[in-house]
């Protein structure tokens, strides 16, 4: 087995999930200029809902085809997350659209705490195990081991990201979204229902988050009420790395962050002669972020904003 190829592959799997979650951050940020801190928790809710549906189906119809089962669970999770996002935006962000910039940040933190604790009360504190409804098969690719679940993750993420890019760049809805992010006032004057576009943006992001949650739970076979928080932060880091507000940047940032973490943890010890070890994995990621931002203050693909923003 080729160790380097395996590390690159590990990074790509991790990175494609980061990218999927980062898209949600970046879309909301692009349109509202708001860090949606609760986005990570939406990922968690998606995973939990899918897990609950699969467990229920397994106990009632143990003979059901796994494809149908995952389709049902996925649909349920996506619907729940979308309506959740709709209500979050409606109740916690919309009333604060003209408030000082930090007010919606604090409500976002509040929502995040609220969702985590509600999930904890409903699903308990223990790590929950995810039943393996698909048999895990391992393949060899360029000398690296890859499981069927990992192939699934990379494929689904790539398809969704491509789909999103198509929506944003080639549909009427996408044009309305881009117009709204340029200027809400002007977009409104052009006959765009700004509130509706913002709601839709939140819901699309939440749908992606739900899928990300299912993919993660499926890959690691565990789900936990706190699983969304760190993931959300990492994804947010990825979005900033790529240039927040920029969809391509989020994908690039996500993949890059996954690769940095994986290769950092794998080689940092050898590179520094054993002085730094894999416990500095996260430091490595943040240092790269800081260095990138020092030289490109708006991220890798971020547009240069004039000082008078």
């Amino acid at each position: 087995m080729d160790i380097f190829a395996q590390q690159v592959l590990n990074g790509l799997v991790l990175g494609s999930v980061y990218a999927l979650v980062a898209l949600g951050y970046t879309m909301v940020y692009g349109i509202l200029g708001l860090i949606n801190f609760a986005h990570g928790e939406v990922v968690m809710i998606g995973a939990m809902i899918a897990l609950a549906v699969v467990s229920a189906l397994l106990s009632v119809f143990p003979e059901m085809s796994p494809f149908l089962m995952i389709a049902l669970a996925g649909t349920a999770a996506i619907l729940v997350c979308m309506s959740l996002a709709f209500f979050i935006e409606r109740l916690a962000y919309r009333p604060l659209r003209n408030a000082p910039r930090l007010a919606p940040l604090i409500t976002a933190i509040g929502i995040s705490i609220l969702l985590q604790n509600i999930a904890m009360i409903i699903w308990g504190r223990k790590y929950k195990t995810v039943p393996q409804i698909f048999p895990t098969e391992t393949f060899e690719l360029f000398g690296a081991n890859i499981t069927s679940v990992q192939i699934f993750i990379i494929t689904v993420s790539a398809l969704l990201m491509a789909g999103l890019l198509v929506i944003v760049h080639f549909t009427k809805l996408g044009r309305a979204m881009r117009a709204t992010s340029e200027s809400q006032r002007v977009a409104g004057l052009m006959g765009i229902n700004v509130n509706k576009i913002i709601s839709v943006t939140f819901m699309i992001g939440a749908g992606l988050a739900a899928v990300a949650g299912i993919l993660i739970a499926g890959n690691y076979s565990v789900a936990h009420y706190s699983m969304g928080f760190m993931l959300g932060l990492k994804a947010f880091t990825a979005a900033v790395l790529g240039g927040i507000g920029n969809l391509g940047g989020a994908v690039l940032g996500g993949l890059l962050l996954g690769l940095i973490e994986s290769i950092g943890a794998g080689y940092i010890g050898d590179l520094t002669g054993g002085f730094l070890g894999s416990h500095y994995q996260d430091v490595f990621a943040f240092v790269v972020l800081i260095v990138v931002l020092v030289f490109r203050p708006t991220g890798i693909m971020g547009e240069r904003v004039s000082e008078r923003a």
Binding site: A92, P95, L96, P100, G110, I113, L114, I118
Partner: peptide, 17 residues
């Protein structure tokens, strides 16, 4: 924590400053 989260949201909605 539930009450804390709720308080953060409510206070900000009622008194954003």
């Amino acid at each position: 924590m539930l009450l804390f989260g709720l308080a953060l949201i409510l206070v900000m909605l009622v008194r954003p400053t």
